[in-house]
Nucleic acid binder design. Structure first.
Length: 499
DNA sequence: AACTAGGACGCAT
DNA sequence: ATGCGTCCTAGTT
C-alpha cells in the first residue's frame, strides 16, 4: 500500500491538509530578509498558521455578515483567540514534530486525493460549507484580500495550491506580481534579490486586512482543542482516513496472513509486519529485526514512539505511526469495543484536553474493558524483558476486586508514566512534562492517572495513594528522585529513565 | 481533604 | 529477588 499516510498523534493534529504554510514559513526566515520596509504594494493577509485557518476565519466572518439576523453565531465562543505575536517558535509542539515533514510528504492528499475528498458530509465548519460561504462573501475591497494569496501561490511551483483553494480563491500569483514590479522598476527579476525579499516580507507581514475586518488569526490548536463542537466536525475526515487505512491493512493482512489486530500477532508476524512496513515506506531494511523486536503484537502496540526511535532511529517514528494507524483501524471495526479514551478523533487531536467523561468511564465500563480489551497482556519498553504468557486470573488477598482476564501486565509504573507523557492523545492533560530534559513531570489529574494505571494493570481498585506509593519506591531504586523544590504531584525521573 | 513519606506484608512473576 | 498492590500511620500543604 504505497499510499499510506504518515499519521501519528501529533502529526495527525493537522486534520486540515498538511500544513504547507508552515512548511513554507519554515523555509523563509524573515529575520534573514532585509529590514527595509515600504508601503505594501500588494496588501495581503497572511495568517501565521495556515491556510485552512484563513478559510475558517473568512467563512465565519461571512456567516456573521450573512446570517446575523437569522442565526447569530456565538461569537463569544467561536471568536478565536489570537495567538500571541508570532514567531513560529511560539508554537513549538505541532511544528516541532519530528515527523512533520513526513506528514507533509505523505499528507492527506495521499489518503483521498485532497482535503475535499475527505470532507464528508458534516455540519457547520467542514470544508464544503466553508467554501460555499466563501462564495457568498461580499466582494472584498481591492486592497483587502480574504482569499489570501497564500504563500503557496507565492511559492510558485514548489508548493501548489490545493484543490481546496483552487476553485474559491482568486490566487494572486506573487511570481507574476514580482515580475511586474521588476519590469516597472526596470530591474531584472532575479531570485533572492532585495526587492523580492521586501515584497515577500511585506506580503507575509501585512495584516491590514486582518485589522480591517477585525479578523484574528487562528491557532489550529485552539481551534481544535478549544471548541468541542468543532471537534466533531473532523470526525468524518478521520473516519475516511481510517477506512482507507483499513483497506490497506486488509490487503497487507491477506498478503502476510496476519490478523488485522496487531494484538494478535506472534513475534514472527510482528517481524513480517515490520519488514513489510519498512519496504512500504522505502525505509532501510533492518538486519537484526528479530533481535530488536522480540515482542509479540500486543507488546509491540504498547511500545512508545520513543522506544521505536531508540531501536530504529531512522525508521522508528514511521513504524510507530503506522502501527498506531493499524491499531486505530482495528479499534474502529464494528464489534470491536474500543478504548473509550482512544476514540479516533481524540487520537487525531493531540494535546486535546479530553473532556473525560467520568460517567462513561464508570466501573461498569472499566470492567467491560478489562474483560473485552485488556490493554496489555505483556509489555516492556526494554528489549531485555520478555513478553509474558497470559497469567491466570488471580484471587488475591484483599485485592480490592481485581478482575480476572489476564492478570495485568509487565509494564512498570515508570514506563507507563512515560508512555502517558509521550501520548497526550491518550491521557489528555492528566499528566504532562514540566521539564522534559530534566525528566520532571507533573500529574495533573491524579485520579485519572491512577485509573489509567489500574486499568492497564487490571487493578480496578488502584488509586493515587497506591500509585504514589509505588512511585515513592522508585526513590530508593534510583528510578525517580524528589524534585529540588518539592511540589505536589511533581516527580522527576532519574537520568537514564527520563530518556 | 489531598497529598507526601515510608513501614510492613503478601502475591505474582 | 523483584515489583508492586495493599494497608497503615504520621506529617504536611
Amino acid at each position: 500500500m504505497p499510499h499510506s499516510p504518515q499519521l501519528k498523534p501529533h502529526q495527525f493534529q493537522a486534520q486540515t491538509p498538511p500544513d504547507q504554510y508552515s512548511a513554507f514559513a519554515d523555509n523563509f526566515d524573515l529575520s534573514l530578509l532585509p529590514q527595509e520596509s515600504a508601503p505594501a504594494p500588494i496588501p495581503t493577509t497572511v495568517f501565521q498558521y495556515n491556510a485552512p485557518q484563513i478559510k475558517v476565519e473568512c467563512a465565519w466572518e461571512s456567516q456573521n455578515q450573512q446570517q446575523q439576523q437569522q442565526q447569530p453565531y456565538p461569537r463569544s465562543t467561536h471568536r478565536l483567540i489570537p495567538p500571541p505575536a508570532y514567531p513560529h517558535s511560539a508554537y513549538p509542539s505541532p511544528q516541532s514534530s519530528p515527523l512533520q515533514s513526513e506528514f507533509a510528504a505523505y499528507g492527506f492528499g495521499r489518503l483521498g486525493g485532497s482535503y475535499d475528498s475527505l470532507s464528508s458530509p458534516s455540519p457547520s465548519l467542514e470544508a464544503a460549507s466553508i467554501k460555499q460561504e466563501l462564495h457568498i462573501l461580499p466582494p472584498s475591497p481591492p486592497e483587502s484580500n480574504c482569499e489570501t494569496p497564500s504563500p503557496r501561490s507565492a511559492c510558485g511551483e514548489s508548493i501548489k495550491a490545493e484543490p481546496f483553494d483552487a476553485d474559491i480563491e482568486s490566487l494572486i500569483d506573487l511570481n507574476s506580481l514580482l515580475q511586474q514590479q521588476s519590469l516597472q522598476s526596470g530591474q531584472p527579476n532575479l531570485p533572492d534579490t532585495k526587492p523580492d525579499h521586501q515584497l515577500l516580507r511585506e506580503c507575509l507581514e501585512d495584516t491590514s486586512f486582518q485589522k480591517r475586518h477585525n479578523l484574528k488569526p487562528l491557532a489550529l490548536e485552539s481551534f481544535i482543542g478549544g471548541l468541542a463542537e468543532v471537534r466533531g466536525d473532523f470526525e468524518p475526515v478521520i473516519s475516511l482516513a481510517l477506512e482507507h487505512a483499513k483497506r490497506e491493512a486488509d490487503a497487507i493482512c491477506a498478503e502476510l496472513q496476519i490478523s488485522q489486530d496487531p494484538n494478535g500477532w506472534s513475534p514472527a508476524q510482528v517481524h513480517a509486519w515490520l519488514r513489510s512496513t519498512l519496504a512500504q515506506f522505502r525505509l532501510p531494511p533492518v538486519a537484526d529485526l528479530e533481535l530488536q523486536f522480540c515482542e509479540d503484537g500486543a507488546a509491540l502496540t504498547l511500545l512508545s514512539e520513543e522506544e521505536f526511535v531508540r531501536r530504529l532511529p531512522e525508521s522508528g517514528s514511521t513504524l510507530h505511526a503506522q502501527l498506531e494507524i493499524w491499531k486505530m483501524a482495528y479499534a474502529d471495526q464494528p464489534g470491536h469495543q474500543q478504548q473509550s479514551d482512544l476514540w479516533p478523533a481524540s487520537y487525531a487531536m493531540p494535546n486535546l484536553d479530553l473532556d473525560y467523561n467520568e460517567d462513561s468511564e464508570d466501573e461498569e465500563d472499566m470492567d467491560a474493558e478489562a474483560v473485552v480489551t485488556p490493554l496489555s497482556s505483556s509489555f516492556t519498553s526494554t528489549p531485555t524483558a520478555t513478553p509474558t504468557s497470559g497469567a491466570a486470573p488471580t484471587a488475591k488477598r484483599s485485592n480490592g476486586g481485581r478482575t480476572g482476564g489476564g492478570g495485568g501486565s509487565h509494564i512498570h509504573l515508570w514506563q507507563f508514566l512515560k508512555e502517558l507523557l509521550a501520548s497526550p492523545q491518550v491521557n489528555g492533560t492528566a499528566i504532562r512534562w514540566i521539564d522534559r530534559s530534566k525528566g520532571i513531570f507533573k500529574i495533573e489529574d491524579s485520579v485519572r492517572v491512577a485509573k489509567l494505571w489500574g486499568r492497564r494493570k487490571n487493578r480496578p481498585a488502584m488509586n493515587y495513594d497506591k500509585l504514589s506509593r509505588s512511585i515513592r519506591q522508585y526513590y530508593k531504586k534510583g528510578i525517580m528522585k524528589k524534585t529540588e523544590r518539592s511540589q505536589r504531584l511533581v516527580y522527576q525521573f532519574c537520568h537514564p529513565y527520563s530518556q
